[in-house]
């Protein structure tokens, strides 16, 4: 798996960024766990429910989705149907993978653009959350950020494929079980 230096550098930089996103998202998951447990504790032990905690836990979900999705893409983990593509070999397989990564890049681009519009609109109108003093766009900003990262990751994968190289983590069809069946509800 040899790549030209520039491509390898870009791929590594993108991997770093998407890894950072995944770490932040993992912190969000742990915070979610913490908030929910504290919220239960506050109700039972302090007799004082704290609705703010529940709202914050809801926002953390937004962070989890948008910051971890790029890393899932980098690992080619996103859920799909691989009965057919799993049986392809050679050029056909490359073509299918390229189509997949390009479609993700397009989604990333569309989400980036609409995410920026959404944030701009919310700031202009001054839409607020249910928690006093917190504007909605603080949470919405995860959308363009995550979408941008998703687009970068997918573009880097597509570029690698077009150069005739193998992107990292590309499944080779030898695995019996998909990498995370839990995400398929199975």
């Amino acid at each position: 798996m040899r790549m030209p230096g520039a491509t390898r550098g870009i791929a590594r930089a993108v991997a770093l960024l998407s890894g950072l996103g995944a770490v932040l998202a993992s912190v969000a998951t742990l915070l979610c766990l913490l908030l929910v447990c504290v919220s239960v504790g506050a109700r039972y032990f302090a007799g004082n429910p704290l609705p703010v905690l529940d709202r914050c836990a809801g926002w953390l979900v937004v962070a989890i989705v948008l910051l971890a999705a790029p890393e899932a893409q980098r690992r080619f983990e996103h859920i799909g149907v691989d009965v057919l593509t799993g049986r392809l070999r050679g050029v056909a397989r490359r073509g299918a993978t390229l189509l997949g990564t390009l479609s993700v890049a397009l989604v990333g681009y569309l989400l980036l653009q609409s995410g920026l519009e959404t944030v701009a609109f919310s700031r202009m109108i001054g839409i607020m959350t249910e928690v006093e003093g917190v504007p909605v766009w603080w949470i919405q900003a995860f959308l363009p950020a995550g979408a941008f990262l998703l687009m970068l990751v997918a573009l880097a994968q597509a570029a690698t494929l077009l150069l005739g190289e193998e992107p990292e983590h590309l499944p080779d069809g030898s695995e019996d079980l998909p990498r995370d069946t839990l995400a398929r509800g199975e």
């Binding site: 109700r43 007799g47 004082n48 429910p49 609705p51 529940d54 709202r55």
Partner: peptide, 11 residues
């Protein structure tokens, strides 16, 4: 509700 001594929760 809080002033009346209740503990309001959002669910």
């Amino acid at each position: 509700l809080a002033a009346a001594g209740a503990a309001p929760s959002a669910m």
